[in-house]
Simulated assay, not measured.
Amino acid sequence: MQLKKYTDYALRVLIFCAAKEENELSSIKEISQTFHISDHHLRKIVYELNKIELLETVRGRNGGIRLAKPANEINVGTVVRYMENDFALLECFDKGADHCVISPACKLKHTLHEAMRAFWEVLQQYTVQDLVVNDSELRKLMNI
């Protein structure tokens, strides 16, 4: 399974903001330059994260973005579920397209469902705060 870059970038934005000092604003340009991601792409991601109330945007000349809630209240599994819209690992996962002839007797689907459940269980155990426990090292690497 592979997550979309969109999800990866959303998590990076949250990590970047969480690594900043509390209530310190970040800019899209700053994040863009740090991770070498286009401003345009980041604007879409910030919009989505703002829409689900994970980021707060501050308008104006000295504006920017910051976490809308404490990092320990932002669950990684919840973020990934929101950002990803398709977890059909195989054709048999798609409810509308069950074209495989062995599907009625195949155990692969069950095995992959079990693996997917384990994946979600692990992600649900972590918050953004858990991802920035080494914040001084992260700040140094991100030049913040």
Rank of each mutant, 00 (worst) to 15 (best):
R12W: 05
A88W: 00
Y126E: 04
G64T: 03
N75Q: 04
N23Q: 01
R61I: 13
G96N: 14
C100K: 13
D39N: 06
C106L: 15
L131M: 14
A18Q: 04
Y6I: 15
K29D: 09
I28P: 12
Y82A: 06
L54S: 01
V58M: 12
Q129K: 13
Q125T: 06
L3P: 11
V79L: 14
Y47S: 08
S32F: 01
N72V: 05
V80R: 04
V101T: 06
R139K: 15
E91V: 13
E53I: 10
E73V: 14
E48C: 13
L11I: 15
V128P: 05
K51N: 09
A19I: 09
G63V: 08
V46C: 11
K51P: 08
P70W: 00
N75M: 05
C106R: 11
L3Q: 07
I102Y: 03
M116C: 07
V133P: 02
P70R: 03
L25Q: 04
L11S: 07
E73Y: 06
T34W: 04
I65G: 07
N72Y: 02
I15H: 00
D135V: 14
S27N: 07
P70F: 00
R66T: 02
A105C: 06
F93R: 08
K140Y: 01
S103W: 03
I102F: 01
T34F: 08
V76C: 08
A88S: 06
W120Q: 02
V132A: 07
D39M: 03
Y82D: 09
V46D: 04
T34K: 14
Y126F: 10
S27E: 09
L90A: 10
Q124I: 04
C17E: 05
E48Q: 11
E21Y: 04
G96T: 08
G64I: 11
F87E: 08
V13Q: 14
